[in-house]
């Protein structure tokens, strides 16, 4: 766990990558176009792959290289490609009726970052973690989770909801890369395949929606049948 006492240069590289991926989460929050969401998600996954590779290089965990390559391939290429296919086939280019305007969701996102910082500082003081990198990782992780929840709540296109889930998961993954870099590799593989299943399930859901309701918006799912 050398992330707790990293050298200043390493710490600044970590913080730059972490904050840049937070910024990409905001790009997703502030845009209306599905294609922008997908590109931002892919870029975020590549950044996280770079982060885990650099953690692996600095802390000497050779298995992190494998995880970095898998992250880049799965989250950076395969998942965006699958989602892009859904977007193309269903012809959903953008959110038709935004529940929250992009600008107000950006401001709410900024407030949630401040909240995440407060929580992270609290956790840091109660666990006696004085390292800046740890606080930053906690802040970025918590705020990406909050942004993911916000995207799940405030969007009603099925594709942007699954992207909200993926952002949430990316946040947790980013946090674990910095906080507990020596996680067993099996766990990572399980998570990656889980994500694949999530995307496939959503693909089925979107097709079902298209067939039954004639649109991909989850606003039309009002009745509880069971």
């Amino acid at each position: 766990m050398t992330a707790f006492h990293a050298s200043p240069v390493v710490a600044s590289i970590f913080s730059l990558i972490a904050i840049a991926s937070l910024l990409l989460a905001f790009v997703m929050l502030g845009s209306r176009w599905m294609r922008h969401y997908l590109m931002a998600f892919a870029a975020q996954s590549w950044l996280i792959a770079i982060l885990s590779a650099s953690v692996g290089y600095i802390d000497r965990y050779p298995e992190l290289y494998v995880i970095a390559i898998l992250t880049a391939l799965f989250r950076g290429l395969l998942l965006p490609y699958l989602l892009l296919r859904i977007v193309r086939r269903m012809n959903v280019e953008r959110e038709i009726v935004p529940v929250l305007q992009p600008s107000s969701s950006l401001v709410i996102g900024a407030i949630s970052v401040v909240f995440a910082l407060a929580v992270a500082e609290h956790i840091g003081t109660s666990l006696d973690l004085s390292s800046k990198v740890v606080i930053l990782a906690l802040t970025v992780m918590l705020s990406m989770k909050l942004i993911g929840y916000l995207m799940l709540a405030a969007r009603h296109e099925a594709v942007s909801q699954v992207l909200g889930l993926l952002v949430l998961e990316n946040g947790i993954f980013l946090g674990t890369q910095i906080l507990v870099p020596g996680m067993p590799m099996l766990l990572e593989l399980v998570i990656l395949f889980d994500l694949l299943i999530v995307v496939v399930c959503f693909g089925v859901l979107v097709r079902y929606l298209m067939g039954q309701v004639g649109s991909t918006s989850t606003l039309h799912l009002r009745r509880l049948v069971g």
């Binding site: 910024l23 401040v114 910082l117």
Partner: peptide, 16 residues
């Protein structure tokens, strides 16, 4: 709003 957000992020990162 984007500019506001960037300024908030900058302030957060000065705090950390």
């Amino acid at each position: 709003a984007a500019s506001f957000l960037l300024a908030v992020l900058a302030i957060i990162s000065t705090q950390i």
